[in-house]
């Protein structure tokens, strides 16, 4: 399977160079894309069980640009990198931040968006900032195995940091008062705060990303060594940013530029 994918990849890349897109239909490659499906508004499942979100729309646009046939596979966040390595899918498009730790295991495309992390807390909170001192003695939640959890553990050393399996669980615990604050992407938090369930809480402030922990933004992960595929994704990202598709998807979900500086 692996070799056939590689072969198809090499062939289609060669074909692309040779024919300069003269006969796309013949060499449609197949890419299986892994995503989490529990991280709205980037990727989540509708009540009907369909995937939707910014990551999903971007993935579809990239596949169209690369003239590839894409299939989505949902996978728990904890096991998403091992599943990629085991060949369950060929790429991860799931708002995965490009970090040094992950870069040792997988190869990344260039970033396709970058939004800052933030702290959310109940509306009547006495937390006034996002510094270590402001959160001292507080209970802070984050999704486990994320840059946000790693950042919280490294930064808020005077706080009690709790790891949750997905964003939904820490949201429940912030709403019912078990948590004093949560740390996640500002867009994910804002999306939740805008729903009736998020009425309890507000954004206290955004955090300046730390390069070593947060990385340059979210990228598309492929198996180590499959740099051709990563490069094709990077080229496709440039292409959809140039032809306006990216901006259209951006506008569908957000009223600001998620690509970041």
């Amino acid at each position: 399977m692996k070799t056939t994918t590689r072969l198809a990849l090499a062939l289609s890349a060669a074909a692309l160079v040779l024919t300069v897109g003269a006969s796309h239909a013949q060499d449609r490659m197949k890419i299986r894309i892994g995503t989490e499906g529990a991280y709205p508004p980037f990727n989540n499942l509708t009540s009907a069980g369909q995937l939707e979100g910014f990551d999903i729309d971007i993935a579809r646009a990239l596949c169209e640009e690369m003239n590839a046939e894409c299939e989505f596979i949902t996978q728990d966040w904890d096991g998403i990198i091992p599943a990629l390595q085991a060949g369950k899918f060929d790429a991860i498009i799931a708002s995965m931040s490009i970090t040094p730790e992950r870069s040792e295991q997988v190869d990344f495309s260039k970033k396709y968006y970058n939004t800052p992390p933030a702290i959310a807390a109940p509306k009547d909170t006495d937390i006034t900032g996002v510094t270590k001192e402001a959160l001292a003695g507080k209970t802070v939640g984050a999704q486990g195995a994320t840059t946000h959890f790693n950042f919280s553990e490294a930064t808020y050393t005077d706080s009690d940091i709790r790891a949750y399996p997905t964003a939904q669980e820490y949201q429940l615990d912030l709403a019912n008062g078990r948590l004093d604050a949560v740390n996640d992407d500002v867009v994910v938090l804002s999306e939740w705060l805008a729903t009736p369930d998020g009425e309890c809480c507000k954004i206290v402030g955004t955090i300046t990303p730390v390069e070593e922990i947060h990385g340059p933004g979210a990228g598309i992960a492929v198996r180590k060594g499959e740099t051709e595929l990563a490069d094709r994704f990077s080229q496709a990202i440039d292409a959809i940013r140039a032809n306006g598709k990216y901006q259209a998807i951006n506008e569908k979900y957000f009223d600001f530029d998620v690509y970041g500086g």
């Binding site: 904890d78 990198i81 091992p82 040792e104 939640g141 486990g144 790891a163 399996p165 669980e169």
Partner: peptide, 21 residues
């Protein structure tokens, strides 16, 4: 039990794995 944020042996294992792969 790690699903309710109690870090037992398995929870710590998952944490270590998520850092080291």
């Amino acid at each position: 039990v790690a699903i309710i944020t109690v870090y037992d042996l398995m929870g710590e294992t998952r944490r270590a794995y998520s850092r080291t792969f």
